[in-house]
Amino acid sequence: MSALTEQLAVETVNLTKVYGQATVADRLNLHIAEGDIFGFLGPNGAGKTTTILMLLGLTEPTSGKAYVCGYDSTREPLQVKRITGYVPERVGFYEGLTAAYNLAYIARLNELPEKMVAQRVNEALEVVGLTDVAEKKVGEFSKGMKQRLAFADILVKKPRVAILDEPTAGIDPEGAGQILDLIADIARERKMTVVMSSHQLNHVERICDSVGILVNGRLVVEGTVSQLGKDALGGGQFKIEIKLTEITSDIVEAIQRIDGVINVERTVELLVISCSRDVRSQIARVVIEAGGLLVGMKIRSYALEDIYLKYFREA
């Protein structure tokens, strides 16, 4: 009964790809829930693109399985492609044809009834803001426009899962921001699962619910951003850094006794406190009561960078 509700949008079981001597993907076990925006993080050459191609059934895995909405990517690639929209890293269009024709071609290849093609194409172009240039040849488009056209591709198809390989690569920060917001809006509105690979942390952080970090073909960590953040910050939700004129063990012990403090780390001139809630006022009082002099105090919640650096260093 619960099989449907529990079905994952993307699941891989020990997915492995070996090229000659190099293991590009090493026993990957991904679990992406339906409706999630998943950030697939990793440095260049970590195996992100290869994994994506295996999900789509465009590359055969050496061993292991990949499933998209329950369909086996190797055995039923056509089913997978029917419900998946894919934007490659270097997305290409037929430059001699108009934007509208490029989209209509995709619509027809997806066997959309001919009378619906024009309507669907116009809708998609409107969402990405390219209606004015619908009849222009794609060769005249800028990179940002082409990237937006690539999302129009997905809108035409209306897939259950969208797989975007480096959607913001090579685009200026403002354009990248627009594209990310567009992805997030569309995904939330249509309850579409998004798998987005990137090596840019801030882009992933901006829209993703969960992330997986891939280093040298191995998935070093996978989970929701908040959960991973807690792990990376020693279990706390917040990290408070305080600067004292002198650090004594009395003060450290006193701080550790505060309710909500999980861990206290001592560096040369700083105390780094992981805590589950904002305990700045308590810390200030405890420090003064213990006879310390407070020089500065900073609070920040976890950042993906912490997560990334933690696991990247470990790998």
């Binding site: 465009l58 056509l78 492609k81 270097r90 997305v91 290409g92 037929y94 290849l109 997806n110 198809k157």
Partner: peptide
């Protein structure tokens, strides 16, 4: 040419053989 322009990946990710 389709391969170099990146249209092949786009084309083959559609539900066609």
């Amino acid at each position: 040419n389709e391969q170099n322009n990146g249209t092949l990946g786009r084309l083959l990710s559609q539900p066609i053989y």
